[in-house]
Design a protein around this nucleic acid. Structure first.
Lengths: 215, 215
DNA sequence: CTTAAATTGACCACATTGGTCAACTCATAT
DNA sequence: ATATGAGTTGACCAATGTGGTCAATTTAAG
């Protein structure tokens, strides 16, 4: 299945995938329009259905594709030996932001799949959702050294705080990053700026919650 | 204008407003359906257009209405004398969550108006957006006492952190709160639980960034 | 009983939907 | 050169939904 599609040049595949991700990120499954997708990807109606057979198949293909991309990126680039949770979060942040460079709306799409209610795809999503969930929070944060925290620090609260700060900084830069996907230089500069700011905040938090750091 | 609508019993007004807010929160302006609104609000097509004249007028009425509700709630319930930023945020959080009780999708709707791109309403939104922006961050956080922070604390970073933690906790409870709007008892219990949790985190942060608090 | 406002919902012309398919292009093999 | 078959096109389809209208009906008040 999808063989014809997979025989295309990778660039063309990416173009179609990104157009579809975009449409399904803005709209929910039912209101997303295949016509918009083909218009944006500059392909014909017929060929889209030749590639994917149906709207539903296209959607499920995207979900599997994007899930795989995300998991692979984490598995291949995350240092699972790193005991410092700040450095772990720094890595995750960088991996995510660099995925946006190639797949602008990957995480918007994933967010949408969580809340998708259309009966046409809901059960299929539930089935494979497990894959993503199992592989994420359990393993991604295994081996963190909680002894790095000051002894009378509530580490659960500290970790939540770190996550929320990370998300806050990401969101602050996301829009700018997205509007600079075509300008690789500007994108990388923004990314670096974002990572620097994250580091500033991480230093700030480390001073507060880690031991062996002076005030 | 809207006089016929304003002559309705307040309950019926609320029902229509909430149905419309809901539809415009889920969909963008163009894809939001007046048919869905009248179905949900259990009124006829004709009367909606008798009340508001057009889809555009309805949308702009909602925007003004919701903006006013929000600003009024802040102005009447926020203690502008309170110098402790944690208590300020606690108040804001409570005001927001209690507004959700009456207008389930108020903030989803507001969020959507920020990113609305339809040419039909964009310019009008821009014009009145100023109202909301001016009245918010400038005045809402005026008079905060920054001397409460430990002297070698970067107060900007601390404030950002507090805001992100507040948002994180709100989001953690928002979905549950929304699914309990009809059960006033459960709603209030959840709200209290949320405020308690926020307080826990605020205590946690206070210990870290305020002076005169022991570790 | 009259009158006028409130309300209904069938109806309009039009746009868009997911999907089909006959026709066409074009690279490759013989 | 020619034949073959996969790749590709876009006009077309029935179905559904759109914002908006309006003649007809209900309701309330004098």
């Amino acid at each position: 299945m999808y063989q014809t599609f997979l025989n295309l040049e990778v660039e063309k595949q990416h173009k179609i995938i990104n157009s579809a991700l975009k449409e399904f990120s803005i709209n929910n499954y039912d209101t997303a329009s295949t016509n918009k997708i083909i218009k944006d990807a500059k392909i014909s109606k017929g060929i889209l259905y030749h590639y994917f057979g149906s709207k539903k198949n296209l959607y499920l293909y995207l979900y599997e594709y994007v899930t795989t991309i995300f998991i692979d990126a984490i598995n291949s680039r995350l240092d699972f030996e790193e005991p410092d949770i700040f450095k772990r979060y720094e890595q995750i942040m960088k991996i995510k932001l660099e995925l946006i460079k190639q797949y602008h709306t990957l995480f918007d799409f994933l967010k949408k799949t969580y809340i998708e209610t259309s009966l046409e795809v809901r059960s299929e999503l539930d089935q494979s959702n497990l894959t993503l969930q199992n592989s994420s929070y359990e393993s991604v944060f295994a081996g963190i050294d909680y002894d790095l925290f000051h002894k009378n620090i509530d580490s659960k609260k500290a970790i939540d705080t770190i996550r929320w700060v990370t998300d806050g900084i990401s969101h602050r830069y996301e829009e700018q990053l997205k509007s600079n996907i075509d300008n690789s230089e500007a994108f990388n500069q923004l990314l670096e700026q974002c990572m620097e700011e994250a580091n500033d905040y991480f230093q700030f938090l480390k001073q507060l919650v880690y031991k062996n750091t002076k005030r």
